[in-house]
């Protein structure tokens, strides 16, 4: 949390300087209205989805937005099948995802791991994508699934692959007049699994998380390995993916690839970098061992 707050401070320091404080609370009922407001306020407004990470930025006086735009009343909480694809509205909560059909296993597990009924009923998938570690469990799962983000603005729509979304700590591939409207997941893979280690069994922040999506354990043709918690935003373990492609997953392969899961890690203040790297390797091995044991 401390790291996150520090990062956010740095990020929003610029924002507050831009505009005189003209406090207003806006709760648009339609996406079009929300996009008009976003165009008007751009980065000087705080966009609140579930509020579980964003509201405290205001209450702790880390930011002084010119306006608050709440997405609560937008009709964006849905999980729809669109042909081969699944589309999830940006304000869909973890609890709603858990009640939906057709959601890939790894995303269900990430949603289930959000602790407590109250957080599950409020944390939204869209908000989760923007939330840095120790948040962002669902983002890790989505990253392994090659999810695509639908950005909307009054100028039109733009599709951004999640792999191209994170540009640095709290720096995203989103334009100042855009809102994240929905998330699309292509044909769900045959196997997918998410695991995390948090401070306690029930509750507590995520220390590290790993999500793996695979088409086959006998000859890998499509694979996504995403790691969360080691860096402010999750990353794809691309070296591991390359090593897995075209291979049959064996015990030795799991062991050798596990060495490469932790590409980078930052000290979180909660635990050391070394421990985080260790956790990522262990979680990865557990997932692949579990996925191959059903062979």
């Amino acid at each position: 949390m401390k790291n996150m707050i520090t990062l956010i401070l740095v990020f929003f320091g610029l924002v507050t300087a831009l505009k005189e404080i003209n406090e207003s609370f806006l709760m648009p009922e339609s996406v079009n209205k929300a996009l008009q407001l976003k165009k008007l306020y751009r980065d000087s407004a705080l966009v609140v989805s579930g509020g579980t990470a964003s509201v405290q930025l205001v209450t702790k006086m880390l930011i002084s937005p010119a306006a608050i735009i709440s997405l609560e009343n937008l009709p964006l909480n849905y999980v729809k099948k669109k042909g081969n694809m699944i589309e999830i509205g940006a304000t869909t909560t973890a609890a709603e995802i858990l009640e939906s059909d057709g959601v890939p296993n790894c995303l269900l597990e990430a949603a289930k791991g959000i602790h407590g009924l109250a957080l599950k009923q409020n944390a939204t998938i869209g908000g989760n994508i923007f939330t840095p570690a120790p948040g962002g469990d669902m983002a890790t799962a989505l990253l392994s699934l090659d999810a695509q983000l639908i950005m909307s603005s009054s100028r039109g729509r733009r599709i951004v692959p999640l792999t191209k979304f994170y540009k640095g700590p709290l720096t995203y591939n989103i334009r100042s007049d855009e809102l994240l409207i929905a998330i699309r997941i292509g044909k769900p893979p045959k196997h997918s699994m998410f695991m995390k280690q948090s401070i306690y069994k029930y509750g507590g922040q995520t220390l590290a998380s790993v999500s793996v999506a695979l088409d086959s354990v006998d000859k890998v043709k499509r694979v996504g390995v995403a790691v969360g918690g080691l860096t402010p935003h999750p990353y794809r373990a691309s070296r591991v993916e390359k090593m897995l492609l075209g291979q049959k997953i064996s015990e030795e392969l799991i062991e050798t690839t596990a060495q490469n899961v932790a590409e980078e890690a930052s000290d979180t203040g909660l635990v050391s970098r070394e421990y985080l790297r260790h956790l990522a390797g262990v979680l990865y091995k557990r997932i692949l061992t579990r996925l191959t044991s059903s062979r």
């Binding site: 609370f25 709760m27 509020g51 579980t52 509201v55 209450t59 608050i68 709440s70 009923q121 409020n122």
Partner: peptide, 20 residues
């Protein structure tokens, strides 16, 4: 904790204006 329209909310993470 409170319930807002039967949904749990941490009232410390809820802007008052949103319960209008």
């Amino acid at each position: 904790m409170v319930l807002v329209d039967d949904k749990l909310r941490y009232s410390c993470l809820t802007f008052a204006a949103s319960v209008n």
